[in-house]
């Protein structure tokens, strides 16, 4: 008989597996999704008691594939808000990282060019950047809104969340 007392690592593995399935089940209505995930946890626990967690999870396959099988029989007419938010967040993080790197590049160039305090202005994707660097000061000031980044985030959010599904005509007739 296989013990059902899971180690902390196994509990984490089960948690992350189910969470990943939930992420890919975003198109499923919330109440239905909760019911499916509750049943999945029961099935994982029962299988774990029989064959152990590693085998139980391996038999289930990749979380995305399992979620796809669950979704096959569900009306795919809901926007995938979580996926859209995640994709938009990645775009935002990339833009933020780019801005920070650009600003540090400006400050580094100022420090290298002159030993005295000096100022430089530039822009990165629509955001004005005023950098000031010297022996006693190291500062950056940002102005404006990065509209290209905003538009990119909105478009990515719309595409990845399948926003068109909110349109009445886009709903599947079943």
């Amino acid at each position: 008989m296989t013990t059902t007392t899971l180690s902390l690592a196994d509990r984490w593995r089960r948690f992350t597996y189910v969470q990943t399935v939930e992420l890919f089940l975003d198109a499923m209505p919330r109440r239905r999704r909760r019911a499916v995930l509750a049943e999945l946890r029961e099935n994982i626990d029962a299988a774990t008691a029989d064959v152990g967690l590693p085998t139980a999870l391996a038999d289930l396959g990749r979380p995305s594939d399992l979620a796809a099988r669950y979704l096959e029989s569900e009306p795919p007419d809901r926007p995938t808000w979580h996926i859209g938010a995640l994709a938009a967040s990645i775009v935002f993080a990339a833009w933020l990282l780019g801005t920070v790197v650009y600003t540090f590049g400006m400050l580094d160039a100022l420090l290298a060019l002159s030993p005295a305090t000096s100022v430089a202005e530039g822009s990165f994707f629509g955001v004005g950047i005023r950098a000031e660097a010297g022996p006693e000061v190291l500062a950056a000031e940002f102005r404006g809104v990065s509209w290209p980044a905003v538009v990119a985030m909105v478009v990515i959010f719309g595409l990845f969340s399948r926003l068109w599904r909110v349109l009445p005509g886009a709903r599947r007739v079943s």
Partner: peptide, 25 residues
């Protein structure tokens, strides 16, 4: 049967390639 037991019964019937990830949904 419960889910995992059903999978083992399917295996026993000759469908050895059937996995829980296919049967649970």
């Amino acid at each position: 049967s419960y889910g995992y037991e059903l999978v083992t019964r399917l295996h026993g019937a000759g469908l050895t390639g059937v996995a829980t990830g296919t049967v649970y949904p």
